[in-house]
Each structure stands twice: as C-alpha cells, then as structure tokens.
Nucleic acid binder design. Structure first.
Ligand SMILES: [Mn+2]
Ligand SMILES: [Mn+2]
Ligand SMILES: [Mn+2]
Ligand SMILES: [Mn+2]
Lengths: 220, 220
DNA sequence: GTTTAAATTTAAGCATTCCTAACTTAAGAA
DNA sequence: TTCTTAAGTTAGGAATGCTTAAATTTAAAC
C-alpha cells in the first residue's frame, strides 16, 4: 500500500500525463505538488523501484500499469467524496476539493463502495470530472472544448471545470456559472485572446488563463 | 497541529485515564497502541515537551488541559463519523470503528461541523458513547453499570458497548443485543463470575471478560 | 563544436516514527 | 535492607519525506 505522499505523487503524475505530446518531468511534478525538485527526484526513484513508474534518470517518467491503476484508485476516492459532500452534505463545489484531497487517502475500499452505492454509482463528480469505476474504467467522455477554443457566435453548455483553485471556483459561481449552464460566446479579443461570454443577461470578459479552466460542448 | 500518531497517543492516554485509581503507564499506552515501550517512552517525552502531558520519568503521565482538549477533539470526530456511517450509510455498529479510527484524523473542523449539523447535533454514537460538543463538553451521562455488576433477578437496558473488537460486536449482534435492548439477569456463576442473561426468549452465558464490555441501566 | 544555461540528481542534514537491544530505575520479595 | 525482576529509558539504526547547496547532465545558443 502506498503512503499518502506516494498516492499524491502518483496522482499528480497521472494528471500531468494527460497533457498530450509532453512527457512528465521532475520539474512538472515538483511544481504541481509544491515540493523541491530534489524531493521529487528522490521520490520518483523510489516509486520507480517499487514498480509504479518507468523512469530513466534525466529522461522523464511514465506510469506503469500498476501506477495507473493506483492513480485511478485515488482519483475514484477523491471524486466520489466530492460528489458525496456536495449532494449529501450540501457543500459547494468550491469547498469540496480541499476536503477530498485528504479523505482520498483515508477511505477503505469497503467504505468507498458503500458511498458509491449510496450515490447510485455516479459517473461524474461536481466539477464534471469522470469517476473511474471500481475496476479503474472511466465512463465515456463527451468531446469537450476549452473556452479559448469555443467559436464566437455559438452557444455552449458547461460540462467540466478545473477545481484546483477555490478562488476561481468561487468566481465562477459569482458570475453564474454552474455545470450544464448554457453560455453564448459573444466575442474574442485578439489583443489578449480573452473571451467575452454571456451568462444569462450579463456578459463577462474571461482571460485566456481563466478560460482554460472551463470546458464546454456545443449546445444543440 | 498534532500528527496522526500524536492524536492516537493522546486519545489512548485520555481513554486510559478514565479508569479510576490508576495512573497511566508507558506499558499501558504501548499495549493499547500495539507499539514498543521504547517508542511510547519517546513519544511521551515529546508530547510532554509540547505541553500535552505532565510527565515525570519512570512516574507515569497525565494529560494537561491542552491534552484533554485535543483528545476530546479527536474523539468528537471519531464518534460523529461512526454515527454518520451507521445512520446515513447504513453500516453496522461493528463496521464503523475501524473506519472512524482513520477518518478521525482526516476531517477538518469545517467538515465535522457540517456532519454534526446534518445529524442534528447528536449526543451519543452508535455504541452509546457520548459525543463531545465542539467546545469539548460531554453530555450528561446516565449512571451505567457494567454487566458483571448487574444484580441477578433484575432487568436492565443496554446503553453502551465497548467497540474496539469487531469480533465481539458481531457476537453481540448475533445474540440479539443492540442499544436499548432490555435483558434479564438470570444468574451469576460464582465459579468464574460469568453472567447468564436472557435476551428475548434465549439465554446466554457471558464470560466476565466479555460482560465487562456491556453497560446497562436498570429498567424501570 | 563549444559554451552556457537549465534541468536534474546527489549530498548532507533535519524531523518524525518506528524497531531491537542494552541499560537504568523502582518496587516488591526475601 | 538487600536482592531480584519488572518497568521504563536510552542507544543505535532504519525508513520516510522534506530542505538547501553542490555536483552533474542535457539541451539550446552561439
Ligand atoms: Mn478535486
Ligand atoms: Mn491528496
Ligand atoms: Mn469507536
Ligand atoms: Mn486513529
């Protein structure tokens, strides 16, 4: 059984691997977890010895099957807890990530299956992220597009939000964004590639950096 | 903030202190937590330096006010989780202790107050143990008697069960014992101080050791 | 093709938590 | 009161997980 730290490293590497055409570097992991590169380098070597990673010194890393399985196991617990906290306890979507970040390491398989059953085997968490099933299979995913790539003039439905910043989540709530909300792409400023969207009767200019945390599908 | 280990030591010492006329020894703590006496001795010295315990070498220990507050804080989280798991998720009273033993260290004050509110500020956990409120105050306790001290011929109502052994909890369930169940004390064998109780239509001989885990109040 | 800078690893050190083995103290028995 | 032993502490060592500083390697610039 991996420790809490190891689970967090493995999960971080899994998430970094999801970016296409880029192998995962020590620096990437160190930045994501906010630890030193030295600590990361050591941990990566340990995880590699223990069979969670393929790793060649100075060359970057990739998860083994075992590593992927472990990552999906942690992610499953994280997302089930988030959904549970929102749907049952009534926490907001901006409050749950920090709690889940801890609970994901403190939940037995037995308990997580009970939570899963209670929630009727949900497929997505409160931010629209897919929940792996107990075998590690992800549900089929809609073909989402990040906001900076949405076309001006079209309407889109919000299906996923990156949840790592509470501040950002609160901002999204404030401007009326929630999952499945339909918005209109009013325009895009070539000056800074920001996007102006209309939510209900109000319009907002969303910077490219912020916009990259919002994922939509075209509204039919 | 104490670490998980420290919280477990402090909680163990609190619970050992509840036995009257006995000061808490290194051995007591080591046995309870199933670690070596050496590890306990070291930890006790650290906790003493940090103000959680009064401690004189070779002389035993007692919690400071700070230590008691910390212990009650952990116990609150433990018992609220146990009740939540039973009342909301439908786990049995024998399944929850092990889960709570971990969750008690992974729950923010924010979350525990939400759970508490959801449960309508409960006063007792599924084993009849009192839940400290957020200020550390325990509810008023009934004057319970352990089974070996119950008088033959009288009827008693079960109000508290020691929950540390799953095996024992399952046995209690099997013979029909649950909280608030009324039982009749049929007899006591002087040979081994075991007690014969009647639960519904069945009678059972309960050894003194097992009986000391059951607490009753006289049924009026 | 060198040179240089960035990325990465190694080294040295610290804190925590545990272990076994050796030693010390306290307390009861003789 | 001395002896014996149980209880408790210290010593030495290991694993984890983190830090900063010093090497080392790679890759990009010239
Ligand atoms: Mn999350
Ligand atoms: Mn985490
Ligand atoms: Mn318990
Ligand atoms: Mn615990």
């Amino acid at each position: 059984m991996p420790t809490i730290s190891k689970e967090d490293y493995i999960k971080a590497i899994y998430q970094l691997e999801s970016y296409p055409d880029k192998s995962v570097s020590t620096t990437d992991v160190a930045n994501k977890l906010e630890v030193s590169k030295a600590a990361t380098s050591e941990m990566v070597q340990r995880l590699s010895e223990q069979g969670f990673l393929n790793y060649e010194k100075y060359r970057g890393m990739s998860l083994t099957e075992d590593g992927k399985r472990t990552a999906l196991h942690v992610i499953r617990r994280h997302r089930i807890w988030e959904l549970f906290l929102v749907d049952v306890l009534g926490l907001t979507w901006s409050e749950v990530h920090a709690e889940a970040e801890i609970l994901e390491h403190s939940t037995s398989d037995f308990l997580i299956e009970r939570l899963d059953k209670y929630l009727r085997h949900p497929k997505f968490d409160p931010h629209g992220e897919p929940i792996p099933d107990k075998y590690g299979n992800l549900p089929e995913l809609p073909d989402w597009v990040s906001l900076p790539k949405c076309e001006v003039g079209k309407s889109y439905r919000l299906v996923k939000v990156t949840d790592s910043s509470k501040e950002l989540m609160d901002y999204f709530t404030e401007i009326g964004l929630s999952l499945n909300k339909v918005v209109m792409i009013v325009s895009r400023l070539s000056y800074d590639n920001s996007t102006i969207i209309q939510v209900g009767n109000d319009s907002f200019n969303i910077s490219e950096k912020i916009a990259s945390n919002l994922f939509f599908i075209e509204d039919v």
